[in-house]
Each structure stands twice: as C-alpha cells, then as structure tokens.
C-alpha cells in the first residue's frame, strides 16, 4: 500500500519568453523577480492530485513578464481515509503533509523545467530560488 505520493507525470502546459528588453544597450538587468502561483486539483476516483505551477519572471520593480511557464505535475496519493475529504462547498481538502509534499515536489520540478527552457536565452542565469517553506 502506498504511504507517500508518487510522481505520475509531468506536462509543460505553456511557456513564453519575451525578447530581451535591453538588447543592444550596455545596460543589463541583473535582478529579477519571480511570481509563483500554484493550484492543486484532484481526481478522487483515480486518487490523483495534479499541481499546476505557474512561474512568471519579471525585471525587479516591473510587472512586465519576461518569461512564463506553467507546469502540471500529477501525483498518485495514498488511498487512505483522511487523505482527501470532500467539503460541503464541493471543494476537496487534502491532508496537510501530503499537500505540502506535492507542492514542494512540483515547485522543484518546475524550477528544473524553467531552467531547462531558459538555457541559451538572456535569462539563462535566472534560476528560481528556494521558496520560503520549501
């Protein structure tokens, strides 16, 4: 019987990269800001949790996105009581330890995919730092 989430699959759902804003000028952007959004969804029949992670890279002090990637990571979760509970609102509640585990794993996977996608571009040194709580 499974006792921890196992990675079921990874999909890069979308990726976009803007042209270098300072191309041709000597001024180089050295500081970037990351916006990370995560959403968890589940298919309770298959005991699957899919974590959608969207990372947006922006120049510091700007909201102009330079690169955006959305990655879906599917995890099989243990089929034990209390792992997933349906609330009256229709939403599901996942146990805190499993929810945090899949969230951290998905963030790490997205970091790797973003790094891979940005290789060779003007953002190749731009690596998603460790997030608080990660």
């Amino acid at each position: 019987m499974e006792t921890s989430p196992n990675l079921h699959g990874i999909e890069l759902l979308s990726f976009s990269l803007s042209p270098e804003p300072f191309a041709g000028s000597k001024e180089k952007q050295v500081s970037y800001e990351f916006n990370v959004q995560q959403e968890q969804k589940t298919n309770p029949d298959k005991q699957l949790v899919v974590v959608f992670t969207t990372v947006t890279v922006m120049p510091s002090g700007s909201t102009l996105p330079l690169a955006t990637a959305t990655v879906a990571c599917g995890f099989g979760i243990p089929a034990s009581e209390g792992t997933l509970t349906r609330q009256t609102s229709g939403e599901y509640l996942i146990s805190a330890d499993i929810g945090q585990a899949v969230s951290r794993a998905a963030t790490g996977i997205t970091r790797g995919i973003l790094y891979s996608q940005l290789r060779g571009s003007f953002l190749q040194d731009c690596i998603l730092p460790l997030l608080p709580g990660e």
Binding site: V36, Q37, Q38, E39, Q40, K41, T42, N43, P44, V49, V50, L84, Q87, S89, G90, E91, Y92, L93, I94, A96, G99, Q100, S103, R104, T107, L131, P132, G133, E134
Partner: peptide, 13 residues
C-alpha cells in the same frame, strides 16, 4: 474531471 483542492495555510506560493 478535476476538482479544486482548497488552498491551505503554509503553502509555498
């Protein structure tokens, strides 16, 4: 079909 999981405190984002 996918169902939303309610966000909890202590998330990474």
């Amino acid at each position: 079909p996918l169902y939303k999981i309610a966000s909890q405190s202590g998330g990474l984002t």
